[in-house]
């Protein structure tokens, strides 16, 4: 049952002098005490209701009996949509967009800032998307996993559990990156391809090779392609948690690692160990040799 119905009930109960309290509200609607508090706070701060707790009556009353509820209400789904819009507009630096961001934020019950007269630029969005946006964001902020139904690019429907890390946009679409527990790897999900979503009461898995820098709004190096694979032999034991790339298999000190850029991989190898050997592929060995040759020739004759 939505909060609209509950707030109407509370309003009616106060006007009929039944002095509803948190317990009566939570029992009436089978909701938590916390949710009942939130409804009272929403009435007080977002709807401007003159609502106060009366110790004498052991329940809530209006200090101004002329108060009436506003003629329109914002449902939970609509609030999620407004929250989504406020975040979206906050990313645009122009003043009118910032004003819109504040307005949507206030309407969603997050903020209480004043809003000036504004012009409204057009932007398309779906309410379903907005709800999912809000759910993913909640999971991230609560450090929880997420259960969702998802249709992949081939049109195949699957139920997935994901440890979400970050929401980002690319062009007109929103995505989020997370560790997919079904695929046991990092995956990028399109928000509009997700169906039902729910936060799972389980702490998120921390993927060692997740790099937030790779998932930035509108960056062109967003990875659509298959990664390169290489086999590296280290002379000492490596802690897999410190390997910033995906390790697909391991045989003793030999690791099969996936990567997208030789520049990133070789740079990292130099920072973690000077004693390593690239077993394959040949082109990567050649790159390493060229890099070393370049460094050597740059430093040739120079005092250390």
């Amino acid at each position: 049952m939505g909060n609209f119905h509950r707030i109407q009930w509370i309003d009616g109960a106060i006007k009929e002098k039944r002095y509803p309290c948190i317990k009566t509200i939570s029992e009436q609607f089978e909701i938590s005490d916390r949710q009942a508090y939130r409804d009272i706070e929403y009435m007080k701060y977002s709807l401007g209701a003159p609502i106060e707790y009366s110790a004498k009556e052991k329940g809530y009353l209006y200090t101004d009996s002329t108060f009436t509820l506003p003629s329109f209400f914002i449902s939970e789904e609509e609030k999620a949509a407004l929250k989504f819009l406020s975040i979206q507009y906050s990313k645009i630096k122009e003043e009118s967009s910032q004003n819109l961001a504040r307005l949507f934020s206030r309407l969603s019950g997050q903020d209480d800032e004043n809003v000036s007269q504004i012009s409204i630029p057009f932007y398309q969005f779906s309410v379903g998307n907005a709800k999912n946006f809000s759910t993913v964001q909640s999971a991230i902020s609560q450090d929880k996993k997420l259960d969702m139904s998802y249709v992949n690019y081939q049109g195949i429907f699957q139920q997935r559990t994901v440890s979400p890390y970050k929401i980002f946009k690319n062009g007109d679409r929103y995505y989020f990156v997370g560790y997919c527990h079904l695929k046991q790897d990092l995956r990028v999900f399109r928000l509009d391809r997700a169906g039902s979503m729910a936060v799972r009461e389980e702490k998120r898995y921390k993927c060692p090779y997740y790099d937030p820098e790779k998932y930035v709004d509108d960056m062109t190096y967003f990875e659509y392609i298959r990664p390169y694979k290489c086999t590296i032999e280290f002379c000492e034991e490596m802690d897999e948690q410190n390997i910033k790339f995906k390790v697909t298999s391991r045989n003793g000190k030999r690791y099969v690692i996936e990567f997208f850029s030789s520049h990133d991989l070789l740079g990292w190898l130099f920072t973690v160990s000077s004693k390593f050997k690239i077993i394959e592929p040949v082109w990567l060995k050649e790159k390493l040799k060229q890099k070393i040759k370049k460094i050597f020739s740059m430093n040739e004759g120079e005092p250390l």
Partner: peptide, 12 residues
Amino acid sequence: DPLLYDNLGISM
């Protein structure tokens, strides 16, 4: 870096 055969025609 070289282009993997598998990535021919696949990009943003």
